[in-house]
Design a protein around this nucleic acid. Structure first.
Lengths: 201, 201
DNA sequence: TGACGATGTTACCGATCGGTACGTATGATC
DNA sequence: GATCATACGTACCGATCGGTAACATCGTCA
């Protein structure tokens, strides 16, 4: 950055021209599909069409790259989760159920791999791993958001309902990878409706 | 086995005197607590107080040892799951809820690591891994058992109820490792009761 | 006693792991 | 056209991975 003309660089302020972004994308795909521990950095850079030093110029370690992958994953998650806000404004229940319906479909597709954030927690039991920290922080946020939604839909016991819905969500993530097309995720919407109904009536 | 006196060997018919059993126990503990991929065979034999050749005399490979670990895990699971049969004979609902209550307690303990079988599926996405095969077969059995229990308790839609309960179970396994003591698993029993009630009434 | 099966010891294999030292191409600026 | 920072590639590091060969030791039972 040699002095003048600060607006010469486009949107990206931090130095991330191309290689880093390609690595991100490759890591995202490989980490999600195969698991973080199962994928070596060599495989990532090969898939990205770059070399190892390029990876370590943009990311401090494989663990940090994994954490970055999860940050990207979380951002994408919220986009999907909050998509119902536009289609069903002022209707918390419809917003929530829109996500549940989409999830139920995805989770009954063969090759479904569940939630990248939950999977990372399974892969790294130790509290100190950076990837796990990202995942746990996200799940706390998700839980709080669910409570808010349950309150908005007039639940008599919003915390309990939110707990129940969260259990259903995590159960869907897990059993989606366990069972194929006719897995228990097919009943997710019906069961969630029952819980909501019982908590509102 | 040199001919005569076939009853000379005690209970264990297969050759498994001591080393193999110690390996089994060490593997079970380490695989469960830290994950299969995270544990090397060196660590297992060290913990077991044996050496690597002893491991490979009893188990063909690390993958096979992992599968054996899951077979042991499954056996232990069924013991816990079916424990309600004795305390509540002829009462499917009470049998099931006994397991749910115990699980809810365990899953809200710090350091809880979820279900070893589900975790293995997360660690090994590929269909060909022996450990994954064991886990998937078990989950299918569990699902069938849940359907039978739901029928026995007079559910109007046993498959849907069983699906819902299975989602709650898997959700508890997962969120037990995500949240600490005040995790959503604390509401497991209440939520399960709601689902059962709604499916029977 | 002697033979055998199971276990322990030591040293090693090729492959892959995450990570890095160091030289080279590129592209804008003066 | 010389300069200089940036970005990239070649080649390599030590450590660890799962797995094995060869041999010594021990206890058991005939």
């Amino acid at each position: 950055m040699p002095a003048s003309n600060p607006e010469s660089m486009s949107v990206q302020t931090e130095a991330k021209p191309k290689a880093a972004e390609r690595i991100r994308r490759a890591a995202r795909e490989l980490f999600y599909r195969q698991g973080i521990r199962a994928i070596g950095v060599e495989e990532i850079v090969t898939q990205a069409g770059v070399t190892k030093p390029s990876l370590y110029r943009s990311y401090a370690s494989k663990d940090e790259l994994a954490a970055e992958y999860l940050r990207d994953y979380e951002q994408a998650f919220w986009k999907v989760f909050e998509a119902g806000k536009e289609t069903h404004p002022h209707d918390a229940r419809a917003q929530l159920m829109a996500y549940f319906e989409g999830l139920a479909q995805r989770a009954t597709q063969p090759g479904y791999r569940g939630c990248g954030l939950t999977n990372a927690v399974v892969e790294y039991p130790g509290d100190d791993h950076p990837a796990r920290k990202v995942a746990q922080a996200h799940k706390r946020k998700l839980r709080a958001r669910l409570v808010a939604l349950c309150e908005a839909m007039g639940s008599k016991a919003p915390e309990v309902l939110a707990d129940g819905l969260l259990l259903l969500l995590e159960g869907t993530y897990a059993s989606g990878q366990l069972f194929g097309r006719q897995g228990p995720a097919r009943s997710l919407v019906a069961v969630a409706e029952q819980l909501i109904e019982a908590s509102i009536a």
